[in-house]
Write a protein that binds this DNA or RNA. Structure first.
Length: 144
DNA sequence: CGGCTTTGACCTGCGC
DNA sequence: GCGCAGGTCAAAGCCG
């Protein structure tokens, strides 16, 4: 019963836990994309701009971690090899196409995997003590 | 009343 | 070419 969330970086970790053969394959956080503009319609996808995405594991009892941003859940799907469903969240801020995925580890309901995709273009509206330090690191990784 | 959650359908990429 | 898995949208309903 810890109110605090313990952040773990599987990417930096040399230990490769076989997340039950999760889909995540490789957390490519070293992808650097200078192209932030995305005016391309899905009609002609000449370039799949993969926004920087990085995942980290948090030890929490709840999936909804308040990181200070407002998220709107836009979907929930059950993934294979995981008895727990994965939730999809999107930043409600206009112009901010940041997406977030929350998934629980199979077998370890105490561990929640949060995957962020994209970078926020605006400051936090509601600073959280728990996630403040996490946000700090977040701003470092997407810079790649 | 507004914002958000929920749930099913739909789309796309990939493997066989 | 089909099926599977993952990802997204949209309509309806709920809650504050």
């Amino acid at each position: 019963m810890e109110d605090r969330c313990q952040v773990l970086f599987p990417c930096s970790s040399s230990a490769h836990h076989g997340l039950s053969a999760a889909q995540t394959t490789t957390s490519t956080l070293s992808q650097h994309n200078s192209n932030e503009e995305e005016e391309e319609k899905h009609k002609s996808r000449k370039k799949k701009e993969r926004e920087p995405r990085f995942a980290f594991q948090t030890r929490s009892q709840v999936d909804i971690l308040d990181d200070g941003y407002r998220w709107r859940k836009y979907g929930q799907k059950a993934v294979k090899n995981n008895p727990f469903p994965r939730s999809y969240y999107k930043c409600t801020q206009e112009g901010c196409r940041v997406k977030k995925q929350v998934q629980r580890l199979s077998g370890d309901e105490g561990v929640v995997v949060t995957t962020y995709q994209g970078v926020h273009t605006h400051p936090v509206d509601k600073p959280s003590d728990n996630f403040h330090h996490i946000l700090t690191q977040m701003h470092i990784f997407p810079s790649f």
